[in-house]
């Protein structure tokens, strides 16, 4: 564990907590893409198949349970909670993500570290996470004004993978046999997808204005 990875995990945790706060405090999920939440639930379920088979550390196991539990809870809340579900932007959140799921799974069947059930699903989860934010970014552009908590949620979600890139550079420089091309390349693509959001987020922060994404 290094400081970059810890910062990344904490930033990721903060993004989940901000989202839970937004839904719990405002009893609303307006501006949040259910499709991105469902993609993230798939990402965690596919990536943490080793949850019960490999014990790495208490921290690792607890964080995996937190990420799986929170993503499923948010999906359940947005689908079935009688108050929250009413504020879901159903007609704006129309990204056909099964194309993304199919493409990522096909890529994982071709490009993986080892051809085993767990490894293919792990590679699938890495590729899927890289594009999971797309429905959310599309929804933000369509829904115009973005409330603060939603903007902060997307910001922290993007920032965590940027910390992970620093972690991979650090591990590459300090650990003799560390190579993790699948994670690194996907992580770069993932962070790059946030580039324009980060730009508009910085502008809104600098001008102390509402976050506006161009349509």
């Amino acid at each position: 564990m290094n400081i970059f990875r810890l910062a990344g995990d904490m930033t990721h945790l903060i993004s989940v907590l901000v989202l839970l706060l937004k839904i719990y405090a405002t009893k609303s999920c307006s501006g949040i893409s259910l499709k991105t939440q469902e993609l993230y639930a798939m990402v965690f379920l596919a990536r943490y198949l080793d949850l019960f088979s490999d014990f790495i550390s208490l921290y690792n196991t607890v964080m995996k349970l937190v990420f799986i539990g929170s993503s499923l809870a948010i999906v359940w809340c947005m689908r079935y909670h009688r108050v929250v579900r009413r504020s879901y932007d159903r007609e704006l959140d129309t990204f056909r993500y099964w194309i993304l799921v199919g493409a990522c799974f096909t890529l994982a069947l071709v490009l993986h570290e080892k051809f085993s059930f767990q490894e293919v699903f792990w590679a699938f989860s890495i590729y899927l996470e890289a594009v999971a934010i797309l429905p959310q970014l599309v929804l933000l552009q369509r829904s115009g004004n973005v409330d603060n908590l939603t903007g902060q949620y997307v910001f922290f979600l993007g920032a965590y993978r940027a910390f992970y890139i620093l972690n991979w550079i650090y591990r590459y420089l300090t650990e003799p046999r560390f190579t993790r091309w699948i994670s690194c390349v996907s992580g770069l693509v993932q962070t790059a997808l946030y580039a324009d959001f980060f730009y508009y987020y910085f502008i809104s922060w600098k001008n102390n204005a509402k976050l506006q994404l161009p349509a």
Binding site: D50, D54, E119, W122
Partner: peptide, 10 residues
């Protein structure tokens, strides 16, 4: 220590 399939990250 090398983990079962090197996945010690979240």
């Amino acid at each position: 220590v090398e983990f079962s399939h090197g996945k010690d990250e979240l």
